[in-house]
Simulated assay, not measured.
Amino acid sequence: MIEQIDPAAAWQFMLNHPEHVLLDVRDPIEFAMIGHPPEAKNVPWKFAPGWRINPDFLEGVKQLVPDVATPVLLLCRSGQRSQEAAEQLAAAGYLKLYNICEGFEGPLDDDRHRSSRGGWRFRGLPWEQN
């Protein structure tokens, strides 16, 4: 089962469960240039610009999280790619999956901008850029 969790609840979960892994599934350029939560691990689900699925995604996660009982929180830009990635992990037997439903940047606003209506950054949670 994949639990939907908002960014603030995800942050609280991370503080309360040190055994967790925060998996950022965005393209490496997004991860580095737009920013990411501290200690997030980047294993892309899809690669820009064509948004092709990463054929090595599952193997990358298995190397990072060998125990399928480890809580894994998944994050992308808005919650869509992370949901898809979580579904792949659930099918592979991972048991404790949490999709951060607003993502890092949140949904588009009326002007087609992000980070103004939701998301990790909008909620004022810790983040950094490379």
Rank of each mutant, 00 (worst) to 15 (best):
residue 1 M to W: 05
residue 2 I to R: 07
residue 4 Q to N: 10
residue 7 P to T: 05
residue 8 A to Q: 10
residue 12 Q to Y: 01
residue 13 F to W: 04
residue 14 M to D: 12
residue 15 L to R: 15
residue 18 P to M: 01
residue 19 E to A: 05
residue 20 H to I: 07
residue 23 L to T: 08
residue 27 D to H: 15
residue 27 D to S: 14
residue 27 D to I: 14
residue 28 P to R: 13
residue 29 I to N: 14
residue 30 E to T: 03
residue 33 M to W: 08
residue 42 N to I: 08
residue 42 N to C: 15
residue 44 P to R: 06
residue 47 F to P: 01
residue 56 D to I: 05
residue 57 F to W: 05
residue 57 F to Q: 09
residue 58 L to K: 07
residue 59 E to W: 00
residue 59 E to I: 01
residue 64 L to T: 01
residue 66 P to R: 07
residue 67 D to P: 05
residue 69 A to E: 12
residue 69 A to C: 01
residue 70 T to I: 13
residue 71 P to R: 10
residue 75 L to S: 00
residue 79 G to M: 05
residue 79 G to E: 04
residue 79 G to T: 00
residue 80 Q to T: 10
residue 82 S to L: 11
residue 88 Q to W: 00
residue 93 G to V: 03
residue 93 G to E: 04
residue 93 G to M: 02
residue 97 L to R: 11
residue 99 N to P: 08
residue 100 I to V: 15
residue 101 C to D: 11
residue 101 C to K: 13
residue 102 E to L: 09
residue 103 G to P: 09
residue 104 F to V: 02
residue 107 P to E: 14
residue 110 D to K: 12
residue 111 D to Y: 07
residue 111 D to T: 09
residue 112 R to L: 13
residue 112 R to T: 01
residue 119 G to F: 06
residue 119 G to K: 12
residue 120 W to T: 03
residue 121 R to H: 00
residue 122 F to Q: 06
residue 124 G to F: 12
residue 124 G to W: 09
residue 126 P to T: 07
residue 127 W to R: 01
residue 128 E to Q: 14
residue 129 Q to K: 13
